[in-house]
Every structure is written in structure tokens, then in C-alpha cells.
Simulated assay, not measured.
Amino acid sequence: MDRWFWCDSSLSSGEAVAASAKSIRLYDGDKKTGYEDGHLTLTNQRLLWRHESQSSSLGVATEPANSVKASGSKKIHTGILGIERDIQKKQEAASQNISRAFEDLKNLMGLAKDMVSLSRSISNKIKEHSVSADDTTQFRSYLLSLGIDDPVTREKYGSATQYHHHLAREVARALEEPVQEAGGVMLLSEVYCRINRARGLQLLSPEDVVQACNLMRTLDLPLSLHTFESGVQVVQITGLDQDKVVKDTAQVLACHEGDGMSAGDLARECGVPLLLARERLLQAERCAQAVRDESSEGLRFYPNLFFSRS
């Protein structure tokens, strides 16, 4: 009721009655008011309510009125047709914006491919001029961040089997060096993130990545999928000596014989993910190279002195 005001019941210049009704009660939201059994009149500018005993009316300005004021008394055609036209205009504008966005996206993809080709050319020239290994490694990391210039897609191959075979080779080729730099082992979740980052817009589903990694061993690729007893899956260098990994873990534990190590401690010292550090400690325990101590402070591992002195 805040917008209602008392006004003259007579129509002003340019005001015309659109509809009227009798015996109308006014409500303030859900609440009844004392304004009941009145005559309601809808004009092109106002909504008027008047009881027969009153000379003046309660009125509120309509919206087809606000439009007239805003446009300098220019008459605006409304109704269902006007609404449909307005919706159509908005849809056309949205369609044009989407089309422009996809055009920009295509141009960006084209430029990205050119940049990757240029980077590979420069990388080859760097090798020919015997630039330091550190510079070459750094440049290769830049190259990986730019992405794969011709990623494997389903459209290129007639069957899902052929698609996953080629995808396995692409993943192994793109991530062999990063896996080696990570100590020879990389969590499957990180593999998924890295390969999608390298592919840019041609994103892979988790299922496609898992199926491709499952094929690595049969295709005799430099990387292969390994599953720990806990179910954690990693991609590792093919032929990675698990005994050596256990031995290296035991050597790190030996340096902390007094206070032991948690998975977080090993992760920080060896620079590996927390989940992978925990798997290394559990694997060392299964091989009798480590023992555990569970307390209120958490789970810690110690070198197995019983085994080493037996």
C-alpha cells in the first residue's frame, strides 16, 4: 500500500479507461484492509479504487504510464506481441554474442597450434647448438604448458579400441619426462589433470584416461599403470624397481630412527604427494623394512631394527 495515494477520480488528458470492476477489496500483501466494496478502474496511466461514499480515489501509477513518462509521452505498444518481440530481440543478441565468442575461440586455437609448432622448432635449434640441459628442460616445460598441437580424438579413429591405443601413446609421450622428474611415479589423478592441461580444449574423461593407462603395459610403452594394495593407482616408469623404492624409503627412515616419520614428513622430505608418501611407507612395512606406531598423535613409521639385526 506504500505506492497508493489519494487523487482526483476524474480522468486526466490522454487518460483512457481500459477495464473496471465492482465490489473490490484492497489487500496489503496477504492482509485485508478496510478498503472494501469499492469500484476499481484500470486506465492506461493509473489503477483507481473508490468507494461510492467517497469523492476521491486511491490510486497507483501503472507501469504501460511509467513508460510514457520515461519516453517523453511517446506511446509504447505492449501486450503479448510486444513481449514476444522483446524476447526475440534478446535471443538474437545472445546468438550473435555466442557466435562471436566461438569465432574468437577458433582463432585462439589456431594461434595456439602455431605457437606450439614454433616452440618445437626453437627447441630443436636449442638442441643443435648444445644449450645447457637446464635450459632445455625449462623450455620443454614451457612447451608442455602450451599444449599438444594435434591431440588424439574419437573422430579420427573408427573404434574405441583404436582411440584408446593412440591415446595411451599420447599420454606416455607427453608425460614421460614429468613422471621421471617426479621420481618415476605420479598419481593417476595428477596424470588426469596434466594431460587435460596439455590438451587444452580437447578434454578427456576420467574413464578414457584410465582405459588408456591400462593399455600402456601391453603396448610396451615407457609408462605403465600400477595399483597399490590399498587401491591407489599411479602411473610409473615401466620396469621401476619396487625393491629399490622400498630400500630408499628405509634409508630415509633410518635417518629419523629416533622420532620416526609420518606420511607428511616423508612427503616434505622426498617431494612427493602425501598419498604417495603414505603408500611408500605402507609398502616398506609390508616388506618388513618399517614398523608403525599408532598413538593419539597419529600414525608414525620407524625403521625395522628387528629385521635389520636378525
Rank of each mutant, 00 (worst) to 15 (best):
A160N: 13
V179P: 00
A254I: 08
K74Q: 15
L175G: 06
T78E: 13
S13V: 13
H51M: 06
T153N: 13
V191W: 04
T249L: 03
E294M: 12
L282F: 03
K90R: 15
I195L: 04
T41E: 11
R194Y: 06
G258L: 13
A284T: 13
L215A: 00
W4P: 13
L204R: 08
P222Q: 03
A18F: 12
E294L: 15
E84D: 11
Q138M: 14
G59F: 03
D293A: 03
L215K: 13
Q251G: 10
Y302P: 00
S295A: 06
G264E: 05
D293I: 00
E170L: 02
C287I: 04
Q202R: 11
V246E: 02
A174M: 11
M1H: 14
A101L: 14
A160L: 10
N214D: 11
K32Y: 01
G14V: 09
A101V: 07
S95E: 14
R25Q: 08
F5R: 11
R199C: 04
N196I: 05
S23P: 02
K125H: 02
I24M: 10
A21F: 06
R100H: 10
S121D: 14
A263L: 04
S308C: 03
E63S: 07
V272N: 01
V246K: 00
K22R: 14
I148M: 10
W6C: 09
G231T: 04
G110C: 08
A21P: 01
L240N: 02
L281P: 07
S13W: 09
R50T: 13
S308H: 03
R268S: 12
A172K: 05
S9H: 11
K31H: 03
A174H: 08
T43D: 07
C193G: 08
H129S: 08
E269V: 14
I83W: 08
T62Y: 02
Q138H: 11
I24Y: 11
A101G: 02
G231Q: 02
K90G: 01
D208T: 02
D8M: 05
C270A: 09
V234C: 00
E190V: 04
A133T: 12
R280P: 02
C7I: 11
L219R: 09
V234S: 00
P273F: 00
G34V: 03
E92Y: 01
L266T: 11
R173H: 10
R280H: 12
S310N: 14
R173T: 10
V252G: 03
D104F: 09
W4Q: 05
K127E: 11
F306S: 14
S295W: 10
H164I: 07
P273G: 03
S9I: 04
R3P: 14
D135V: 14
A93N: 05
D208I: 06
N107F: 09
I122M: 09
L276T: 06
V291T: 10
F307I: 05
I126M: 15
W49S: 08
S117K: 06
D8S: 10
L47D: 08
W6V: 15
C213H: 04
